[in-house]
Design a protein around this nucleic acid. Structure first.
Lengths: 103, 103
DNA sequence: CATCTTGGTAAGCCATACCTTACCGTAAGT
DNA sequence: ACTTACGGTAAGGTATGGCTTACCAAGATG
């Protein structure tokens, strides 16, 4: 539920792919699996991780389950990123004044 | 180098911790290792992953190596996030409209 | 009711990601 | 020059995570 889980969930390339797919438009599990080189159960398991992290939600539609991206999940990531974004920029400016280098 | 690598790198909780630490202020490897329950070589390996992903940079200072966060690395994540953020919001609004008018 | 479709769950295999110890190079102090 | 401090690299063990097949439940369709 925390941003930690969202980051961990999106750490996997396949899950990022799935998330991008449902962000474009809501999709059924079978449709998502058809676009990937892995089995449908594998997709189900990935979707479960994304759902636990609060990044997607699902609704039943007949025997099919439609998955969609969840705005609040992205919001947590955005907040985290914005926080460190400003930290890093501030520190970077301070380093330049002192005369730091990189490698 | 792409946002993909940055996301994968930050998918690990220990690396997120390290990144947050160097985002607050640049730190030496030993200092970072002292705050974690893992060995110093393990920290070195994590820092290498973060560096390869473009999220941190290091400079030598005597026998010590000082690691600092790298603004451009965060920028890539921000761009990705902003893109899907707007996608998700647009789609979410569209879903609500369809569901409300149809039924 | 019988059958088909859709998808979640269980069990198990295997690759990889993470951690450890051991070792080496470099810089600084005495 | 010797020793200490600091940290990167190598090699190897282990645990975690992702994939598969097999199975089961629920809804649609005839």
């Amino acid at each position: 539920m925390a941003y930690q889980d969202a980051f961990t969930a999106l750490g996997d390339p396949t899950r990022r792919h799935l998330f991008e797919a449902v962000a474009q438009r809501p999709r059924a599990v079978g449709e998502l699996a058809a676009d990937l080189p892995i089995s449908r159960p594998a997709v189900s398991q990935h979707l479960r991780v994304l759902a636990d992290a609060g990044l997607v939600v699902s609704r039943a539609e007949g025997t099919r389950r439609i998955y969609a991206a969840r705005p609040e999940g992205l919001a947590e990531l955005r907040d985290w990123l914005d926080r460190y974004w400003t930290d890093v920029l501030d520190r970077f400016a301070a380093e330049i004044n002192e005369g730091g280098e990189d490698a």
